[in-house]
Design a protein around this nucleic acid. Structure first.
Lengths: 147, 147
DNA sequence: ATCATTGCAAATTGTTTGCAGAATG
DNA sequence: CATTCTGCAAACAATTTGCAATGAT
């Protein structure tokens, strides 16, 4: 588990939160799902280990884990909604193919120049922690050119 | 109204849909709201003219107007959700300041080079019709540097 | 005269909340 | 042993759907 290196006990305690089995199971689930995990993904994973853990508990755990900085939330597209990943894992953006549904990851670097330019031009500082771009992947673009 | 130039009657009829007062009022509302209009914005506007038009009717009208290509839907951020605008209006992206909440518009041109590069590198064709970037505007960035 | 469309109400989905009992520090 | 936390159920908000009545073509 990549989060073992982080001191999750200290992270929780630092804000007066307690360490509970439910929260650790949720944290593990997010970790094992390796990026862009939805609440449903997480619940499925969690309930394999303990089927009595309620959905509301998962929501609350994710809120708290996000607040203390152990996990990071970001918005995928409208259908997928909010997704979670372990904090500190390599940032990347997503390319969402609207034809086959596949998700591709790209490094943040590729977008850095534009964000720089937006800063220069508009004085606006883009938070580049996560971005989901819709479009067509190579294979699907060949099948249905133009979209 | 900028949509009068479009033949909305033909657009609706071409797919077997009928032209109803409710649909025209919704179309007008989207038009007058001038970009990124939420369902609630639209409902408020619509109900000024006719308070008997139901929310479900507005949802259905927006679906159909989008399907026939008279309006375009896109996702703002998670809180704002889906927004609508008249099709054919100048495309632009949005910068959402997370401190003051203001929305800035930027032209699509600035992002064109990156999308080109993503195409070259990943073979992925980004749909650049609308993008909402979160961050801090100039004024707020000065107040709370670093975010 | 058809058949799509509307308004209403109820169903659905996704998320949040109140509370009594259980568990943590 | 004082609080925080959990599971349950109920509350909510946003969107969708079934249906009888209405209205467009």
């Amino acid at each position: 588990m990549s989060h073992e290196s982080k001191d999750y006990i200290a992270a929780l305690h630092s804000r007066g939160y307690r360490v509970t089995p439910q929260r650790l199971i949720v944290l593990d689930a997010v970790c094992e799902l390796q990026g862009h995990a939805t609440v449903s993904d997480i619940q499925n994973k969690v309930n394999l280990l303990d089927s009595t853990i309620d959905r509301s508990t998962i929501y609350r755990a994710l809120d708290i884990l996000t607040e203390v900085g152990l996990v990071v939330a970001s918005e995928m597209d409208a259908e997928t909604g909010r997704v979670y990943r372990i904090a500190g894992e390599a940032h990347h953006h997503h390319l969402l193919c609207q034809a086959c549904g596949e998700v591709f990851s790209i490094s943040t670097d590729i977008l850095f120049p534009v964000f720089q330019q937006i800063r220069d031009t508009y004085g606006f500082e883009v938070w580049a922690d996560h971005l989901a771009l819709k479009g067509l992947c190579e294979r699907c673009a060949r099948k249905q050119p133009g979209g």
